[in-house]
Design a protein around this nucleic acid. Structure first.
Lengths: 220, 220
DNA sequence: CGCCATAAGATTGTCAACAATATGCTCAGC
DNA sequence: GCTGAGCATATTGTTGACAATCTTATGGCG
């Protein structure tokens, strides 16, 4: 009985709405009408408004005075900028993980690496994508860098749609698997400089893929 | 007349409260009672609540359910973590500024560098501190990296108190002036790698100073 | 004298009604 | 047929009152 306690009505509404947006139930640009959300979330307008304001702070929705809220559209340019920020932040986190990793955490990374190789060679791309997230999350947990962690999580939310499109690009796993392996190896060997470099190289290649996607005529 | 328009009542209240906190009119840990803020800001409780919620999102205040809001205390550990994040973000921004700088912007950086040297040799520390902020702001403006910019600005708000204490440390200008000069030189010569390295070295030394401050027995 | 139950006061949480604004539609005028 | 003014509707902004909760003061009991 202390910190993690009963979520307030407003917090529940906010979390539910965030999940709905991330799940893709509301598309970018779609208007979020307060009255509709009241039904959908089973909350009063008061709490719905609070939720919208929070999510606006997270960059998931845009709110314009007297014009209501809509799911934020992030352009490709913005997605690239956001990913650049993620690149340096996850680099920082990887470096710190390398200085803090313990033995059982090392074997956890090993296991994720093993599962990744298996998933790729078996062609299970969805599973590989999940492992990708799990690897990044594990590195962040090992680092225990609260400031960076919160920001990365927020940014991840803004990018769900683009990341989803990325995962459909053919040939991505073949490129990213060795990058992931290098990240694991560097953190395992407690080398912060190599860990940061490996993580940045990995995310830089994600940025390159995003640019490629833009050149191929997908929506701007 | 379009984008930048009449600030809503809530936005005005939020900005006013933010300024008040940053100015130090409310100290860390101090309770922010809604009714009092209504008078202070000349806003309704509704808007005061919205403002508090916003500033909570910015990390300037803590809000606990049924217990109200208080100015967030950031511990030295947190300040260090936040500054680490700033280090990598401003490094990113400096690198990008190096690839984008134009001629008049180059002379602007030169001028700031000149004024800095003058301020230090004249012992005008307050003026040097202002120029410090101006240099960082100018670099960010040149880079035009909206994603990084927004986050850096938010983090800066959380650190005002610690940065103020830092500026009182004797010997800081002598350390940071050559670092600033190196940042200017690298950006001027359009070298993103050097620019990032110089900026990171500079902020790393700020982190070292923060650690020093902690060791010297200031409040944790 | 100290401690817990109880009540009073202060503060925040929530709501429903009302006001202000934007949006879409109809219809006169050309 | 097109344009624009004016109206109807939908949606958001704001307010004040009331309920829930926490905090502090009080007093009885061991």
């Amino acid at each position: 009985m202390d910190t993690a306690a009963v979520a307030s009505t407003a917090a529940k509404a906010r979390d539910a709405l965030r999940e709905a947006i991330l799940r893709g139930e509301y598309l970018p640009g779609e208007r979020l009408v307060e009255a509709q959300l009241c039904e959908r979330l089973g909350a009063s307008r008061f709490n719905v408004r609070a939720a919208l304001q929070d999510l606006a702070g997270e960059g998931l929705v845009d709110v314009q005075r007297n014009r209501g809220a809509q799911v934020r559209k992030v352009s490709l340019d913005e997605a690239i900028e956001i990913t650049e920020v993620r690149m340096v932040l996850e680099g920082l986190v990887a470096a710190r993980a390398a200085t803090r990793i313990g033995d059982e955490e090392a074997s956890e990374l090993d296991e994720i690496g093993l599962l990744m190789r298996r998933a790729v060679s078996a062609g299970e791309f969805r599973r590989y994508s999940d492992l990708n997230q799990r690897l990044h999350a594990t590195v962040r947990r090992i680092a225990g860098h609260r400031a960076a962690d919160g920001i990365i999580e927020t940014l991840r939310g803004q990018l769900v749609r683009h990341q989803y499109m990325l995962s459909l690009l053919p040939g991505r796993p073949a490129i990213s698997l060795p990058q992931h392996e290098r990240i694991v190896a560097a953190i395992r060997s407690r080398d912060p400089v190599q860990a940061e470099a490996a993580m940045r190289e990995h995310i830089a290649s994600v940025i390159e893929a995003l640019r490629e996607m833009g050149r191929m005529g997908n929506l701007p």
